[in-house]
Design a protein around this nucleic acid. Structure first.
Lengths: 114, 114
DNA sequence: AAGCGTTATTTCCATAAAGATATAACGAAA
DNA sequence: TTTCGTTATATCTTTATGGAAATAACGCTT
């Protein structure tokens, strides 16, 4: 029996705006309150995490995260309400896509048996 | 305005069985009648093409291609009827997935404006 | 037996992607 | 003004990926 896998992502004006990796990172940021801790928690290098966030903000009309550098606790990174909405949108669409493809698989496997 | 991109692939027992790159290669094989010519025609190295076909056959219950080495014209590679059916299945599902996601994008962009 | 155009396979090299490390900048708090 | 934990950024190294090229094997044809 085969299975259908999928990967979706959202593109903005000039590149990828949201994808599975970015969403995972954003969720970690919500948990940790800082980019460095978030990257650490999901086993991602700070450099990669920073680049992802950077390209996200460049391809989004409204900011996805706010960044504070310096300050009482050294600063931090925080996901905006808009960002949280985008995460939910992505997860929802992704889930619906999986459901859709699971259903499509039936017709695919049919001709495998014939 | 954002857009949703997607990539789907079919997995068998032990890895990827069909994907966009493999389908493109199979179509080229149908056109050319040989793996080397097919790879050349789509600007793919023979090595990569061979590996794709190899993993495809390993993850398929029925053969996707038949290969003849040596012989009158040196041999050739030919897509089986089963393989052709799989190509059609993949293209169909892929197209329906795109249509599905295009429709999903509406709800996504809605909260972008709000 | 020799020639041919394939498939099949290995080895080497170049490029790109990712990781590690180091350091600067920042700004509140003490 | 010193300290602290962040963000921000550059540089170097390592690893992974992919292509190039060379060669073997194959079997029909002549």
């Amino acid at each position: 029996m085969y299975s259908i896998k999928s990967r979706i992502w959202i593109e903005g004006q000039d590149g990828v705006f949201l994808g599975e990796g970015r969403v995972k990172l954003l969720k970690a940021i919500i948990e940790e309150g800082s980019l460095s801790k978030a990257a650490l928690s999901i086993n991602m290098s700070y450099k990669k995490a920073w680049k992802l966030i950077d390209s996200m903000n460049q391809n989004s009309k409204k900011p996805i995260v706010t960044k504070i550098t310096g300050g009482s606790n050294g600063g931090g990174t925080f996901v905006t309400d808009y960002g949280k909405q985008m995460i939910k949108n992505f997860d929802d669409v992704n889930q619906r896509c999986w459901d859709f493809l699971d259903n499509e698989l039936k017709s695919f496997n049919y001709s495998d048996e014939s």
